[in-house]
Structures are given as C-alpha cells and as structure tokens.
Simulated assay, not measured.
Amino acid sequence: MKLADRVNRVSPSMTLAISAKAKAMTTQGLDVCSFSAGEPDFDTPAHIIAAAKKALDEGKTRYGPAAGEPALRAAIAHKLRTENNLPYGPENIIVTNGGKHSLYGLMMTLINPGDEVIIPAPYWVSYPEMVKLADGIPVIVPTTAETGYKITPEQLQQAITPRTRLFVLNSPSNPTGMIYTPDEIRALAAVVEGHDLLVASDEIYEKIRYGEAEHLSIGAVSPGAFERTVVSSGFAKAFAMTGWRLGYLAGPVELIRAMNTLQSHSTSNVCTFAQYGAIAALEGPQDCVETMRRAFAQRRRVIADRVNGIPGLSCLEPDGAFYLFVSIANLGLSSLDFCNALLEEKHVATIPGVAFGAEGNIRVSYATDLDTIERGMDRLESFVKACL
C-alpha cells in the first residue's frame, strides 16, 4: 500500500511505544516498575467525575460548538485572566482533544511549507513531528545541564531567520522538569518582541512546581509579548484527567477562528459531557491539585537522591512537572540500548533521551507510588553497576 509522504516523515512516539511494551509485560504477569508514562497515578477528583455524571444525567450528550462549550471557554478565559495575567476573552479560546491536539491544530493552522519553528532540546517528543506534518522545518537548539536545559536569549536570537514563524517554549518542561525563572522569561520576551514571530507557550505543567519556583507566562510580560503569544494547556496533568482528552489553546481571535474551521472538519467538538467535568475542575475546589503536588514533591526528593547516589548516573533536581532527566553518558550505551536492556533484564521502563533530542540521557517519570520508586531504583542501581 502506498502511504502519504507526510506519514513517512514522522516517527512513532517512543514514549507510547515503551509504555505499551511495559503494559504488555505486566499483562503477561511480570512485575514491571514503569517510569515511562507522563501520567499521574491518581484518580480524577470526585467532584470532577460527579460533574460529568450530572451532565450525562441532564442529557448533555449531543453535538456542541466545535470550539467548545461556551461555559468552558469562559471559565478558561477567567482562569487565564485571574491566575496568569493574560487578558483573554472566551473568543480567544478553543477547546481541543487534549493539549497535544491544541498544538497540532496550531501547527496545521499556522505553518506553511518551509516555515521554521525553533524548538529547544531536550524537547517533548511530539513538537518536531507536528512541525514536519505541517511541512515546516524544526530548528533544534541544543541546551545543556549547565544552563539548566534552558535556551538562552543569545541562542534564540541566533536561531531566528526570516523564515522563523514560531518559537516553542515549554515551562515547566517535559522531559527535564526545569522552569524558566521570571527574569529568564522576560529576557526571552525581549528577543521575541524584536521579531515577527509567535511563541507557542506550553504550560500544561504550570501547577506542578516545587520549592520557590515561580511560573510566569511569557504573554504576561508586556503587551508586545502578549500579542505574539499563544498558550497551550489542558487538564491532564494537574487534575489527573489524561484519559478525558481535554486541552485548549488561547490566542488571537483570527488564529482561533482558523483553528475552529480546521477542527470543524476534523474532530468537531470535544466530548460534550466531559467538558462539564473540566468546568468543575476550574471552578471547583483546588485542594486536590495541592494534594497531588505534595505527593509528587515527596517522590521527587526520594528518586532524585536515589539516582544521584548511583555511581555513573547524575541528574538535576527538577523545579516542576514529574520527570527526572538522567545522564547516562558515562556508561557507554546509547539511550535506546540502555532502556531496552533495562526493561528486558530488570523490568524497569524508562524513555531514551534520543526521543527528546538529547542522546546520553533517559527520562524517568516519578508519577508513581513510593514503593515502585524504591523497587525500581534498586533494580536500576543493580543494572548500572553491571554496566560499569
């Protein structure tokens, strides 16, 4: 069968592939410690589930507006105004089938063949693939542990060309968990304001932060930065709603209208009754978010100490999200070979850094219980000792 060229330009998600393999091994009765998926291990909070059930009972099961239920768009706009200092109205919001879909819709709406999109590495696996599907050119800018895996203003300035259309900014970051400080965000905004380009600010982990780390959306820096910013987010991470497939994009009205046109011919509206769960997530009690955040903070301390106590491994302590980005550069294995062998021999699932554009590293998700963390780290330590 002859397939479309665009499909051959992209790679399957290595994250999903390894997570699926780990789940298959578990189904076979093997004891797998999985640190692969970026998925909270908590149940969706009860008041959110109740709101969706109520919507079902009230018959909210029919087609809705392609851009999302008006009440949800209004709730998202209110959240962005009050929490993030971003002056959006409901007309600036489109509800999408997950945060990933918001970014895919953005790329398909904004990028023309040959347009360049600046993506700092390490990056979330889907960013460059989405650009390729839109016939754009991913411009990968490597970062290092020495800079906290953050792009500098100088690097951003050097990467911009007349063909640059978009700069993708992810803070808190997947896969590194690092957060750009307010001063760092302001410095990047100063570069952006000097050019005709947009920033796609992926802020889906914004509520999962530790210590004194602050979150500042680049669009809140100044009116000029706001005009050049589109914000992608969703409900999966902070509210443990991964399977609900609820995300959103906030941006200029012209862009949102164009995305709505695209969405009306692809997915139409997001599941109607699920959207009422999202309204409850935004407007209901937020103590559930803090409970999960505290649990992640405890796990972060345990797993970071364990990893940094293993000779041959090292990692920065993340500021947010629920990932460690671990250097395996001293072990003499590619990240793919390392992860495959670790899974086969020790039944521990991690994601190779090559999937994130950073060979010599692995991503370890600590969105799992402390018992699994302790058992998995024991196995990881045993595996690494055998490699040395």
Rank of each mutant, 00 (worst) to 15 (best):
G68T: 07
A295N: 10
Y149P: 05
N340R: 13
P87F: 05
D41W: 07
L110M: 14
P128Y: 00
Y127H: 08
I351L: 13
T61L: 15
R306H: 13
A145T: 14
S232A: 11
D369K: 00
V354C: 09
A52C: 06
E58V: 01
F239T: 12
A238M: 06
A159H: 00
N170S: 10
C33N: 13
E254Q: 08
G105E: 15
T61A: 12
H265P: 00
S268E: 15
T164G: 06
E227Q: 07
A341S: 14
S365E: 12
E290Q: 13
Q298R: 15
A22G: 08
I351F: 01
T164A: 02
Y248H: 13
E345A: 03
E359C: 01
D41E: 05
D371T: 15
V289M: 09
T372W: 09
G211V: 07
Y149W: 10
A71R: 14
T143V: 03
G89L: 08
A280F: 07
P182W: 10
L197K: 00
L169W: 09
H265G: 08
T44A: 05
L156F: 04
L246M: 09
W124G: 14
G309W: 08
E344R: 09
I328S: 05
R257F: 00
A281H: 07
E359L: 00
Q275I: 06
E146F: 11
L30T: 11
G312R: 11
I179T: 15
E214F: 03
M377A: 08
A304D: 12
M292W: 04
T15L: 13
W124A: 14
Y88W: 09
G284E: 12
S382V: 11
F356K: 08
V221D: 07
N84L: 14
I303G: 05
G234I: 10
L370W: 02
I49L: 12
G194D: 06
N269K: 00
G136R: 07
N170M: 09
A281K: 02
G284M: 05
Q263N: 03
V117H: 05
V32Q: 05
V230N: 04
R379C: 02
L133P: 00
L169F: 14
L255T: 06
S268T: 14
C339V: 04
K23I: 10
A51E: 03
N92C: 05
L343N: 11
E359D: 14
T242L: 11
D183I: 15
E227A: 14
N340T: 15
A236W: 09
L255D: 09
Y210K: 11
L110Y: 14
A304T: 14
A367G: 12
W124S: 15
V364T: 11
A55R: 04
R73M: 04
S222K: 07
A55Y: 05
L316Q: 05
P128G: 02
D43H: 09
F35M: 01
A74W: 01
A213R: 14
V32L: 02
P223D: 09
L72P: 13
H347D: 04
I119E: 10
G68W: 04
T161G: 06
C271V: 13
H101K: 08
D115Y: 03
A386D: 15
K132P: 00
S13E: 01
R9Q: 02
V326C: 08
A281E: 08
S334L: 01
Q275R: 03
G219C: 05
L169A: 07
A278S: 00
P352M: 04
P70C: 06
